[in-house]
Design a protein around this nucleic acid. Structure first.
Lengths: 130, 130
DNA sequence: TATTGACTTACACCTAACTCTAAGGTCTAA
DNA sequence: TTAGACCTTAGAGTTAGGTGTAAGTCAATA
């Protein structure tokens, strides 16, 4: 009945240490326990962990994720607050995508420039670059 | 005659602490000094710092940037190594862009879902969400 | 029944990337 | 000639986000 921490670690890609750390910090809501006091995750937890990973991997700070989770535990009154957090984060992501795309172009130019220098170098000496 | 650390901090957006730290760590090549031993940056340094910021802001670790800079100080023999590092990093960036885009879609769905719940909630009680 | 393996908590430790402090040198303007 | 703004180094402290250890519980199995 429910998943052990080991299973969830495998499914989520987070370590057991990290899962416990997240629960301790309030990044995860408190997880249910079985009769022996062992954590007993369900599909809803798994779903939430996947969202948390997405938020984290797109650069949201643990403290902000914690705030988001806290709102989700408070009930429907907090839906607008949750939505606001997501919308703000979405904006950050959009900005990052733009920045990354512009840098991808910049780096492509650099690579082409290096390639041209390499061809040059085949015919001459060995000097400093950049 | 060159730029002071203060000027470079303003132009680059890095703090003076960070600039010194970068030089200490070899993230920046050793910077020229004036007669009093004060750092004296030039336009080439500024150019390099801009590249370093791009690498860092797109997630390259300080240690890898350091390696890149070390190659650039060794001369044209290392051009292929420099190019390889950039190409690998470019791949990471491309993957990140894809991941970020897919998450941007996911979060948009979530936002829409929250909005629909909010409308529902206007007519009923206050329960847990997510 | 003794061992094995998975789990628990509390707490110490680690790494990356800064960030600050202390103690001091040099230049310029009043 | 002193005040203030700027710089220097060495080294300590901070923050975020984990990661690891020690000591103990519990259940299944040889």
């Amino acid at each position: 009945m429910g998943y052990s921490i080991k299973t969830i670690a495998q499914k989520s890609g987070l370590s057991q240490y990290t899962l416990r750390y997240y629960e301790r910090e309030g990044v995860l809501p408190v997880v249910a326990r079985d009769v022996n006091g062992n954590r007993c995750f369900n599909d809803e937890d798994l779903e939430l962990i996947s969202l948390i990973c997405c938020l984290k991997d797109t650069g949201m700070a643990i403290a902000d994720i914690k705030q988001f989770i806290a709102f989700s535990q408070e009930g429907r009154d907090r839906l607008p607050d949750q939505r606001k957090l997501l919308q703000e984060h979405k904006q950050h992501i959009d900005e990052k995508i733009k920045f990354f795309q512009s840098f991808a172009r910049k780096i492509d130019h650099k690579i082409a420039y290096f390639a041209s220098l390499e061809n040059e170098a085949k015919a001459s000496g060995n000097h400093k670059t950049t």
